[in-house]
Design a protein around this nucleic acid. Structure first.
Lengths: 332, 332
DNA sequence: AACTCAACTGTAACCGATTACATTAGATAA
DNA sequence: TTATCTAATGTAATCGGTTACAGTTGAGTT
């Protein structure tokens, strides 16, 4: 493999001239430039970026810590993140943690050992979080919650949940079931707050039985729905904390002969691609996944490059999307 | 930031001893080991992996070139790939190409400039492919086609397609429509071959009108289905070349009052998570995405580390999954 | 006592780029 | 003519590890 010295020798110039020809050509005479380019072409020289990065003490790479890349909301976010990173000359190291603290730590260590310059965390980290990112490690939280500390890009989970529940209330629903994420998941906490606020303002008492716990997978939504099917006093609407669980729940309801939306309204959260095409299409909240990905990357790069960031927290607007899975409550 | 020399000075040993204490502790005396570890703890030393990688001329990273990470089949594959890479101490650089040749080239260049040690290509590269990976760049093709050159992990697309069409034929269907990928997509080519073989063996003539072209997105499947709805002599079954298009097509059919599977059987390909939960659940072919991800990584690492690989092409078995979207043809 | 050997340690070269600093040549000004 | 300046170039240090090689020590052998 040819190095800058081979090129210099062949071109009859010094290594400094070759280096300058590549990074600041305006400082090099036309003749030298030509000789250098000819030599580069002749030996097929490709600069060793590993050496360059080592010298500049920058990896030009960032880690994206994600609980599960197969989750469509995350993959949309990551696609936008990668796009922006690429524009800025950074690589994206995929860190699929599968929710295990060890793997999170290993990826955080990658930054400490200089293999990456910073981290975008998609895992919702709360105060209670075990592995907090050590100080000095550039980090941006995306998809965080209200209690997230440090730079963050997020949505108003509580407000969005509240508006969704208010919508169901406005359709005449009085008993509204919830399919939640894991109890200690910060998103689940914030969204449940929104639910509680909405029903409280409508003068409806909070019933613990109406909350079914899932884990954001379709399968868990499918199971959670059974809890409602077998109830003596069944809710007439379900607020699911993401689309996948809502889609799973709709399968269960349909299989049990419960029609959607005639007998049961179902709502989701995220607006994944499939929400539009499932049967019936899903009323949901759209998160600006791509916008969030871009902003998270921009914010992280500012931190890495030592630029001041205007605001450390950025709350992006959500969009309310009404489709066919919701209808007015039947008058009984 | 502390370097190995700081640690050596503090511990009262040489840099070589510190280095050895970390990478081959059995070669270092107990006393030195203790002094070194104490010094490391005291100054909070973290080795600079950028320097290590530079010295060893290895990035310990691989690029995964993927047309679209938001595609659920790809994200499953990548999750398994990342898992294996992580086990072996390699990072995964995400290269979402969005199908543009420039971005493919830029990621290939990352390997040439030593920022990565090899490439796993998910983009189906055929002979005609514009940007072939230059010789000397370790590369494994995953999800390739029959004409893929070089090391490859793939499935028998033609055989799988043929068995699916044979199944539809066995249900009594005579007119079987196809929702294809883009005409020049290698998967689409192989799978169409399988379709043609199956109907030819059943003595059915190939009709160009029965082939609708999509692009593997749900939206394109939705559109393609209209082509069949408006036909005077409608097919009674549709072989879609992936699940997403099949799901899109089912939406169209249902919206047009065509019942599935009573009036129309629909089949998919890939067995993505939604295939099981959509309505009706989809008869499809399951690709071993995770197995493929692992094998692709193993194969690439062998190439990178110069080990001989037994076979350069590995064809993995698919699984035929019958669900509720297919039924016998109505006797007319 | 002299020799051999193993275990451990230290010195310094090395990887391939970048870049501070020194040097040279040629143009311009005094 | 000499001083001054600019543009172009070269020399060599540098980044932080790894590792070849040489050296030291002490135990075991003859």
């Amino acid at each position: 493999m040819s190095s800058i010295r081979d090129v210099a020798r062949l071109a009859g110039v010094s290594v400094a001239t070759v280096s300058r020809a590549l990074s600041m050509p305006e400082k090099v005479s036309k003749e030298s430039l030509e000789k250098v380019h000819a030599a580069i072409a002749q030996v097929g020289y490709k600069p060793n970026m590993l050496a360059r990065n080592f010298r500049s003490a920058r990896a030009y790479a960032v880690v994206v810590l994600v609980p599960d890349i197969a989750n469509p909301f995350y993959s949309l976010f990551i696609r936008a993140l990668e796009d922006r990173a690429h524009q800025k000359g950074y690589a994206v190291l995929l860190g699929d943690t599968r929710g295990t603290p060890e793997r999170e730590l290993e990826y955080i260590r990658r930054v400490e050992t200089r293999l990456a310059d910073g981290i975008v965390q998609l895992r919702p980290s709360s105060e209670k979080s075990v592995n907090s990112v050590p100080p000095g490690v550039p980090c941006v939280n995306a998809c965080g919650c209200e209690y997230t500390t440090g730079p963050a890009i997020r949505i108003d989970n509580r407000g969005a949940a509240k508006s969704m529940v208010n919508y169901l209330l406005s359709l005449g629903h009085k008993r509204i079931g919830v399919i939640s994420g894991l109890k200690d998941n910060p998103h689940a906490i914030d969204r449940l707050e929104g639910y509680k606020e909405a029903i409280a303002e409508a003068g409806i008492a909070y019933e613990r039985d109406l909350i079914a716990e899932g884990d954001f997978t379709m399968w868990s939504g499918l199971n959670a729905a059974f809890q409602f099917c077998n109830m003596k006093n069944r809710p007439t609407a379900i607020f699911s904390m993401n689309d996948e669980m809502a889609i799973g729940a709709m399968q269960t309801f349909k299989a049990q002969g419960i029609r959607i939306p005639e007998d049961m309204s179902v709502t989701g959260f995220d607006d994944i691609a499939y929400a539009k095409y499932c049967d019936p299409s899903l009323t949901t909240i759209s998160q600006p996944a791509e916008e969030m990905g871009k902003m998270a990357m921009d914010m992280l790069l500012k931190i890495i490059e030592g630029e001041p960031l205007g605001q450390t927290e950025c709350v992006l607007p959500t969009e309310f999307i009404i489709r066919k899975s919701t209808a007015p409550a039947k008058v009984s």
